[in-house]
Design a protein around this nucleic acid. Sequence first.
DNA 1: CCTGCTACCTGATGGC
DNA 2: TGCCATCAGGTAGCAG
Length: 267
Amino acid sequence: MARALRPLVEGRRIVRCRVIHPIVVSRGSRQSRKLAAAQLEKSLRGMRIRGVERRGKYLILVLERGAVVLHFRFDGQLIWFNSKETSGHVDVAFETGGGTLGFVDPRHLGRVQYVGSPEEVPGIRGLGVDALSKGFTAAHFAELLAASRKPVKILLLDQSKVAGIGNIYSSEALWRARIDPRRPAHRLITVEMRRLHKAIVDVLQRALECCLNPAPNFRDPKWRFQGLERILRVYGREGKSCRRCSQPVRRIEQGGRSTYFCAKCQR
DNA sequence: CCTGCTACCTGATGGC
DNA sequence: TGCCATCAGGTAGCAG
């Protein structure tokens, strides 16, 4: 998202910001939502967008002064349109001279906020090492695993340990590394930790390549990252045969979320 | 401090 | 067709 968005918005000035559904700017009362919405609109008026950054699953529009922090949760997305008319389900519209960026989230679980610095957002301050950064080394990862008794799948989802791995890629990485998602993290042996580390990096990089070509078309109001299914080996394949050993893929619940794995070749 | 559970929202899907 | 239950790529806040 950050890479695709950069050429579209970098250097542009936000002429006006309109909050259409205040629920995405605050989870407080109706009153406090309205207040937060008004403050966001006021803070962004006339502000130039210097750059676009990503931290874990947060997207950040870096402004001349302060920043807009976006989180998409399950369904949030961005679209770009030319008119000022907000068609469809736009929650927040950022109008620039050359077009409007819309934050769209029909379920309203996503968040949009203006901050002086991204570090003010607790979720960002608390992020662990980013899975796509140089700091994510096998050695560091091994230390994290060794320090936790949680099931390894649950640990992978903990953004305060490693930032950027979600429910799909945690299942995918464990399948690639042939590790049972239920195993306590600290019980993995060194070669398994290294295998899992490589699997995480590989699966995220493949997904990234997939998402960048074809690049998302923000002008299509119902665009989605395409072709991700092509790289998925287990996620969502309950009952279908394992791509490695033909055993049926199982779905279990861990921490209230679905995990997919093969009980035969993941040990 | 850590851990596990639930609320937050709405739309799509599948069984009956 | 309509109705109901279930599921969804995530995180914050709470209790223990």
